[in-house]
Each structure stands twice: as structure tokens, then as C-alpha cells.
């Protein structure tokens, strides 16, 4: 297993979002919540199996991490993941400082960086010209932010996050331009109700 902890962006392997999403989901065994950001990010989450603890965002670009922060604050005993694309994160980059300030131990933001707005035609995003998501996150105060060097390193970072003891963290992964493995069924009320029952606190069930 790779154990690089401070991989430079340029040294990180370009991986595949579908594969990494499946690797993440395969490691979830405690009803962890996952908030999938707009577009291909949540399509691949959908395609990885519709866990009731998944929330699929249909618009509101950039708000996956803030939504996940709200879930994490409301349920400090549940691990919460936010999945975002590079374009989405850059649209709401102040959220990194908010998360660093609130400091929930149970929140992990995962960013898929393909240097592009893939769904709108592959236009280059700002990470294509040098913006480094991990450097920005660290600068915002999320000191525990890391580029995934390769698939094994990604899995080890997820495992560390699932340990949940060292505060909020960010994992960034460079990904290719492969299309996602499915398409989310866009029924917002159904998505919300499934998610709410999937993460219902014990005293609020039934």
C-alpha cells in the first residue's frame, strides 16, 4: 500500500471517478452519510448503489460540502462525506474556511479534479491552469488535506477518515474524463425522504 502523505498534485495519478466512488462506497459499513454534488459526481454515486444514506444534489452547484456540514453538525456521531467536482468546489470555495472553523471531526470532503466542467462540454476549469485544491484547502485552515497518490492511497485516506478522530479533512483525487456509470433519477422529494429515513436518528424513527 502506498503511504505517501504529502503527494504533490503533479505526482498524483490520474484515476477514474466511477472506480474511486465504488472503492469509497465499499468501505462504508456504519451508515455513513454521503452527499453527492451536482452532475457526474452524484451520477457515479447513484451508479455505485442507491444507499439510503446518500443524498443526490440536483442543482445548487457548490453546496454539497455545506449540506454535508449541516448533516455533520446535526449528527456528530455519524461520519459524513461530501463529494464535489473541482468546478463546484471553486464556486463555493469559502466553504472550506467555514468547515475549518466549525471543525466537525466527522466530515470528509472528497474532490474529484478532472480540470474541466465535464458535463457542459469539457471546458477547462481553473485547476487546469494551476489552482491546487489541496493547497487552497490547507490555506483555508483544513490542514488535513491530501492528494490521493493512487487508488490504494485513496483507500487508506478514506480509512483514516472513517477513523474520524482528527477533525475535518479533504481528499482530492485527479480523475480522467470518462463518463459516469449511470444517471441519477431526478426526483427531489423522493431523494430527500430516502435520505432522511436512511440517516434518521434513533429517537426520530417511525
Amino acid at each position: 500500500m502506498t503511504t505517501i502523505s504529502n503527494t504533490e498534485r503533479g505526482a498524483a495519478k490520474v484515476m477514474n471517478r466511477t472506480d474511486l466512488t465504488q472503492r469509497l462506497v465499499a468501505r462504508l459499513h456504519k451508515d455513513e452519510a454521503v452527499v453527492g454534488g451536482i452532475g457526474h459526481t452524484n451520477w457515479d454515486l447513484w451508479a455505485s448503489g442507491q444507499r439510503p444514506q446518500n443524498f443526490y444534489m440536483l442543482g445548487s452547484m457548490g453546496l454539497a460540502a455545506p449540506i454535508a456540514l449541516g448533516v455533520a453538525v446535526a449528527q456528530p456521531d455519524r461520519m459524513v462525506f461530501a463529494l464535489e467536482g473541482d468546478g463546484s468546489l471553486l464556486m463555493q470555495v469559502g466553504a472550506l474556511a467555514t468547515i475549518a472553523t466549525v471543525e466537525p471531526a466527522n466530515l470528509c470532503v472528497i474532490v474529484w479534479d478532472n480540470e474541466a466542467f465535464h458535463i457542459t462540454g469539457g471546458q477547462k476549469s481553473l485547476t487546469a491552469t494551476g489552482a491546487d485544491i489541496v493547497a487552497m484547502a490547507r490555506g483555508a485552515g483544513l490542514t488535513n488535506s491530501t492528494w490521493a497518490a493512487d487508488e490504494a492511497h485513496f483507500e487508506s485516506l478514506v480509512d483514516e477518515a472513517l477513523g474520524g478522530t482528527t477533525g475535518p479533512r479533504l481528499i482530492a483525487a485527479r480523475i480522467d474524463m470518462t463518463k459516469p456509470a449511470g444517471t441519477t433519477d431526478r426526483d427531489p422529494v423522493k431523494i430527500r425522504l430516502n435520505f432522511m429515513s436512511g440517516i434518521a436518528p434513533p429517537d426520530k424513527e417511525g
Binding site: 455545506p66 449541516g70 448533516v71 453538525v73 446535526a74 449528527q75 455519524r78 432522511m196 440517516i199 436518528p201
Partner: peptide, 13 residues
């Protein structure tokens, strides 16, 4: 963000 945080918290009870 302020809206999204409250939205997420509502869904979590």
C-alpha cells in the same frame, strides 16, 4: 452556505 448548512441539518433531524 448558510442555507445549505440549515438544509443539511434539517435532513439530519
Amino acid at each position: 452556505e448558510a442555507v445549505a448548512i440549515v438544509a443539511g441539518a434539517y435532513m439530519a433531524g
